[in-house]
Computed example of a mutant assay.
Amino acid sequence: MNYKNPDKDGYYGEFGGAFIPEMLYPNVEQLQKRYLDIIESDDFQQEYQELLKNYVGRATPLYFAKNLSQKYQTRIYLKREDLNHTGAHKINNALGQVLLAKRLGKHRIIAETGAGQHGVATATACALLGLECIVYMGEIDIARQAPNVGRMKMLGAEVIPATSGSKTLKDAVNEALRDWINNSETTHYVIGSVVGPHPFPDLVARFQSIISKEIREQLFEQTGQQNPDYVIACVGGGSNAAGAFYHFVNEKHVQLIAAEAGGFGIYSGMSAATTFLGTLGILHGSKSLVMQTKDGQIIEPHSISAGLDYPGIGPFHANLFKEKRAAFFSINDDEALTAAFGLTKSEGIIPALESAHSLAVLDKKKFNENDIVVICLSGRGDKDMEMYLKNL
């Protein structure tokens, strides 16, 4: 099976598709027909790659974590997406989509954000490329991610709170979709993860695939082999994981591990572990695994990390789960905090709370001494300092 690319209708196995209101059909159809021709064109790639190198700061390092490796008796490498401009992997996709929007003739950009990193990245791309930017963010997330809200406003974006439902990421997506329906001719919606109607899951995965492309090249340079034994990444919607897995997903000897947000525990009623709790449903324009009641009402998720606080996963990952191509671990809030403090004290790197979920897998699985384990460090922990200080 080719796990990497969807079929012509946007399905990864049984997951995907485009379930959208009629008002959005022209926009989504335009994207479906034009996105590959545009992003694969020479002029697009020349501009995009130049910005990744000289503006974003790619390639990000693949760092051999010597102290962490000694602690866990295996070879651990960290893919340092936290060192990108804006502090996370989100800029890879935001820049690509804003460049795409300009070529589609759109001058107004909307985005949703949970932890704020995607919002900051989108506001950054819009400031650079001269487009209007509106970011929807849950009211609760606005309070717990105040530094990123300040950055977005400084960059010229309008930040609009989502005050319905759980007032978190799911609700921000709802508000952004409503905006897009009302302003479809002028506006492009920069979805921040591998979710939403086709072609967004594929589009975002392609922009994030730079992560695994660089891992292969850097690993070969450092070890003489292109493929690691394990790749570990956190999954909410799943964009950093899609990027980290992308060039390995059809390499059957590379084991993929996704870390979901267990919250207070899988069966606590306060969790975001979709593969453990979800069933087949439709959320935000695609068919995937969704946390929902028997009659299809969304169950509110919980995670200490705003970026993983989502009641579904993208169809790319749902297919990996169903086909047993990736192993999914549930990491609770306390385990993520422990892992974050562990990395900080052993390597001098403060990770984002989202990335800390990936690091916590090290305490849940035994690796062999000669294994090469690559962990995607998706973002830096500046935005989470208030939470860390509360738990010192």
Rank of each mutant, 00 (worst) to 15 (best):
T187K: 03
Q218I: 07
V204F: 03
F200I: 11
P199W: 12
E217R: 13
R216G: 01
E217N: 14
I210D: 08
E214I: 10
I210G: 00
P201S: 11
V195P: 02
S212I: 03
Q218Y: 04
S193H: 01
A205M: 12
G192Y: 09
T187W: 01
H188A: 08
D202Y: 13
T186W: 00
I211R: 04
Q208I: 06
P197R: 09
A205F: 10
A205G: 15
I211E: 05
I191N: 02
F207G: 04
S184V: 13
S212Q: 09
T186A: 12
V194K: 05
L203F: 10
E214V: 04
S193E: 05
I215C: 05
P197K: 10
S209Q: 05
V195G: 03
H198W: 15
V190A: 11
H198T: 07
V195R: 02
A205I: 06
V195F: 11
I211D: 04
I211P: 03
P201A: 11
L203N: 00
H198D: 10
S193R: 00
P197G: 12
K213M: 14
T186R: 11
A205H: 03
F200W: 15
Q208D: 08
V204E: 09
E185A: 13
P197M: 13
F220C: 07
V190H: 00
I191L: 15
G196S: 03
T186N: 13
V194P: 03
I191M: 15
E217C: 05
I191Q: 06
D202H: 14
I210W: 12
I191C: 01
D202E: 15
S209D: 09
V195H: 01
A205N: 04
R216P: 04
E214C: 03
S212V: 11
S212R: 05
